[in-house]
Amino acid sequence: MARWQPDAPGRLATAALDLFEENGYENTTVIEIATRAGLTKSTFFRYFPDKREVLFDRGTVTDFLIEGITSAPPAAGPLDTVGNALDTLGRTFFTPDRREFSSRRQAVLNANTELREREALKRLDLTTSMTEALTRRGTPNLTARVAAQLGGLSWEIAFNQWIDTNNNEDFGPLAQQALTEVRTAGALH
């Protein structure tokens, strides 16, 4: 009898990524993903509603961003608060051990229109979540929206640098550098 192995969602994501790279997203089935992970189809659907979602961390990134906004010092301005959220993301999610997986995942997403569209929707949801968290801290709605959008742009810039396999810098410093550059660009008249 096989011994139970932990982290079914992680195993499913790894199996899906391997199969998407080998066979293409369109040519991979949920059954193949579950089998490669050593799990059943019903276990797959316990964690993910469909194969599009297997490469998207269900709420984890949102939770870390909200935690970072909530834990920012009370006197922090909106962009400093977003900076704290990006630091939290770098310490808790975009860690060195996830860089290779994230790079491979992005290559698969870039190769598939359906997955790129799904990623765009997820990023919109993240921006909305950051806006709502900033508003709960007392930031006026328009200011919260702008800060969240600039934070999302900074995150995207930093993420693209971080997944570059020739780059060894941690996500947090890259995100802070991107946020500084975005602030500077925003100050142009």
Rank of each mutant, 00 (worst) to 15 (best):
T92N: 06
T139F: 08
V54R: 02
G172A: 14
L150N: 07
W155K: 10
Y47G: 06
G59L: 12
Y47H: 12
Q176K: 13
R36W: 01
F48G: 07
A144K: 12
A120K: 09
R52F: 08
R137G: 11
N110W: 13
A76K: 02
L124T: 05
N27A: 12
E67I: 02
T70R: 11
I163Y: 14
R145N: 09
H189K: 07
V61P: 07
A133L: 06
E21Q: 03
Q177H: 12
D125F: 04
Y47V: 11
L12D: 12
L174I: 01
N110P: 02
N112Q: 09
Q177L: 12
G68Y: 00
Q106F: 15
T180H: 03
A111L: 08
V61R: 15
V82G: 01
G38W: 02
A13G: 11
D7I: 09
T180V: 08
R3H: 06
V61C: 04
L79E: 10
P6C: 05
L124S: 04
F44M: 07
D7C: 05
L79K: 10
H189G: 00
A76I: 10
I163P: 08
K51M: 08
N168V: 08
L115N: 05
L86A: 02
D80Q: 04
A158L: 07
R105C: 15
D18R: 12
T128V: 06
L179S: 12
E22R: 06
A175P: 04
V54H: 02
M1H: 01
N166P: 00
G90H: 02
T184L: 13
E119R: 03
E32K: 03
A185C: 08
R36M: 01
E169N: 14
L126V: 04
R3Y: 13
F45D: 00
E114R: 04
T128A: 10
A2M: 11
D18P: 05
A8G: 08
L65A: 08
F159P: 04
T60Y: 14
L12Q: 14
V61K: 11
Q5H: 06
F44H: 04
L86P: 08
I31W: 07
G138H: 05
L39Q: 03
P6D: 14
E67Y: 07
N141A: 14
Q176R: 15
F171H: 05
I31A: 12
V82R: 07
D7Q: 03
F93K: 01
A37I: 00
T70Y: 03
A85C: 10
K41M: 05
D7L: 08
A85I: 13
A85F: 12
A144Q: 07
S102L: 14
L126T: 03
R98C: 09
S129N: 09
